[in-house]
Amino acid sequence: MISLPFIAVVVLIAFGLATVLFRKNMIKIVMGVSVIGSGVNLLLVSLGYRESAIAPIFTSAETTLMVLPTPQALTLTSIVISMAVTALMLALAVQIYRHYGSLSTEKRRLKE
């Protein structure tokens, strides 16, 4: 029952999470976050997939099985949002580099 896309989802999320947990470079953390995002998007798309179904366009469609349209709409929204998030985080990382000359998360000023 568990098919290849779901294994890929788990692998992507695990890689992304491992990057965020163990890499100290801010750019790599941003990469990790967007890899997790891709994993979640893949989950959404593969949830709506039906084998040997057609694209969900109703104009002159035959009455065959269609792929679910909602997850694709969700995925598009979430891709747009994750682009905004990635851009914002990279911009913040650039500003931090300009102020402190370092991208390491261990050089932090706010603690305890």
Binding site: V20, L21, R108, K111
Partner: peptide, 17 residues
């Protein structure tokens, strides 16, 4: 508790997980 609040963002994510 001081060790917990060390200000490293990786650890923030660790506590969340």
């Amino acid at each position: 508790v001081k060790k917990m609040h060390n200000g490293i963002v990786n650890d923030y994510v660790f506590w969340f997980v």
